[in-house]
Amino acid sequence: MTETEILHVGIADAKIAVHPQHLRTAGLGSCVGVVIYDKQKRVAGMAHVMLPDSNLAKQAQMNRNKYADTAMDDLIANLVRQGASNNRFKAKLAGGAQMFSFMSTDEKMRIGPRNIEAVEQKLREYRIPIESKDVGGTNGRTIEFDTETCGLKIKTVNKEEAII
């Protein structure tokens, strides 16, 4: 048996996987990793978003995968292009931690919760149910999605691995 191919998603990045590929992103802090998948078609997309809202962008040519709203619009469009169906979509998400307890500004302190809120808001707009999530807290996470089982494996530095 050949080893499973794992697609690595960087920071402010997104990728689409088809069975039996896995999707992985490492070291999520205040960033949120969101997976949207169609279990029947066995395709999934993962985005590693840094900021909640593309209205924050001060760039002429922005990286759409950096912001929750634009990253998810593109992720969903790309999944549909792969033959996945809107009405079968489900989502899992993780991240949005507060790595340091005190921040210079309230805005920055809330970046994790705001990222979570932005991702969940977008899922509501698309009417995509959240199957499971592991968000908030004060620890970094690495996540890996298996297109076979649709399980999302969560790794942290000091806890046991979990699959949600």
Partner: peptide
């Protein structure tokens, strides 16, 4: 903690 999670804090 994980380096990526820590550094992202300095990139916001």
């Amino acid at each position: 903690d994980m380096g990526g999670a820590i550094l992202a804090n300095g990139l916001i």
